[in-house]
Amino acid sequence: MDPSELRGKRGIIAVIALLIICVGLMSSLEKLAGNVSPGISRIYNILAYLVAPNNIATWVYDWRGFDTLIETAVIYVGAVASALVIGRGVVQMKHYSEEAPATSPPLEYRTESLTVILKYLGLPAAILLLSYGIMVVTASSTSGGGGFQCGVIMTSAYLLAAIFYGKDNPIKFGKRFLIGIGAVGLGGYTLLGLPGFLTSGYWQYNVGADIWSLVSPTLHSIFGDPFRLSLYLQEGVFYSTPGIIPLINIAEAFNVVGAIGLIYFAFLYGWSEPPEDQEKGGK
């Protein structure tokens, strides 16, 4: 936007509006300082130790686990929307076309100028990043990490390799592969609500942790035992299980890898499709 557009009446209105918003917001924050009502947080904190040792993991994937599902879907939507933007004209009406498809060409790479060191260190660095991503997701219920972080780290590896090697990216994530990974992630996360729904009637009830004793001991064991943890404290040994939280984290990681990877793919390599009548060696 041209800053000169903000001169005159428009600029004055914008400045006044911003001032009003700032004053209102600042005075609200000043009133809230020291007076924030803890409300429901107190109860969440009292109960948190019963699930994952990492309190944040419990908040994000158990108490507010369905919120997180929809937030995860936001990333997925972003990826699909990016594919539609870059692959303009991928979807068209059969009988009528206002404009011819105008797909964006891929970015140009000049990998010849890379130094030998970078060329040979690129692949190990990407592999290390991928491994780190896997490590982060597997420790998600006990550390501050999780599926989202894992996804971001792994797609960083993909981006790094793309920058180093251009079209000859050794991490060969194709378009359909990334769509598939994203589908497994978002679909998997969504369907992890099914065991709780079928047994307790509540969608995404954590059947592995089962802190309200709503499901059978067998189901509790199936989802809870693989992730059981012992906490050795001065007061004694405590056992807890995050239940389905680690599985949700893995699904989240798949979704983020698929979605962010697809965004990178679309922007780096473009999104073009052959005309439909030529797809199967047709006309």
Partner: peptide, 16 residues
Amino acid sequence: SGLTKRQGPYMSMIFL
């Protein structure tokens, strides 16, 4: 009925 074959992403948006 009215769109070309690659309608998966678009239909996905409609359901979301």
